[in-house]
Amino acid sequence: MSAIRLTDLTLGYDRHPAVHHLSGEIAAGSLIAIVGPNGAGKSTLLKGITGTLAPLSGGIALAKGKRLAYLPQSAELDRSFPIHVYDLVAMGLWNRAGIFGRIGAAAAHKVEHAIAAVGLTGFERRPIGTLSGGQMQRALFARLLLQDAEIILLDEPFTAIDARTTADLLALVRRWHGESRTVVAVLHDMETVRRAFPQTLLLAREAVAWGATADVLTPENLLAARRMVESFDSHAAPCRRDAA
C-alpha cells in the first residue's frame, strides 16, 4: 500500500518548474531520504506533498484518512514570541483540540511525556527565545510526536544541530519507523542517510535514482545529479519536455 503516490508531478514557482515530471510511490511505513544538490527541488517537493504548493501539472495522492505532519526548515518560526516551550509543544494537539477543544489531564500528560521523550524535561516554563538551536529542534520534534501523524515530512531536520541532538532525534525517527509510520526526510548529510535511511530518492528536479539507499548513492548517480541541476536553465520555456 502506498502512503504517497506521485503521478507525472511538476511543481514550480511563477510557472518555472522546480520539480519535473516525477512519478513514483512511497510505500506506507517506509523510511526514505530525499537528497540532491542545492536547487534540486527537495523542499519544493515536500511543500507539494503537504498541499501548500499546488502542482503545475500531474498529481499527488495521499493515502486516505492518514494524518500528515510537516517540519519545515525553521525559517518561519518567530523565536522572539513570548510563549513557553510547553505551549509550543502543545500546539501538536491541534488535530484533537482544534480552536476550542479543552486540553484535559490526559492531554496534558501527553505533552509532558513528549517533552520528556526529547529530553527537555525542566524546560517547560522557559520562553522559546532562550532555547539553543538544538533545544529548539528538540521542542519541534516533541510537537511532531504529539501530532501523532501516520506520514511525517522533515525538511533538513539536522542542519546546524549538534551531534548529540542529531543522534537523539534520529532515534525518534527510528522509533517512528518501528511504529510503521511513513517518514520522508530531506537531508544533505550522506553519512546519516547511509546509516539510518533504508531508502533514498536522489532528486535533481527529476528523479535521478529512487530505491534502496546503497543502489542510489553511487558516485555516478551523485555526479549525474549535480550536472543535471547545473545545466538546468531556469529561463528556458516553462516546460522543456512539453515544448519538444
Binding site: 501548500t52 518567530d78 505551549d87 509550543l88
Partner: peptide
C-alpha cells in the same frame, strides 16, 4: 489559539 499560532509559526498553522 489560531491567532497565537499564526504569530509564532504561520507555517505550522498552514500545515
Amino acid at each position: 489559539r489560531p491567532l497565537v499560532l499564526e504569530c509564532v509559526d504561520p507555517g505550522f498553522l498552514r500545515s
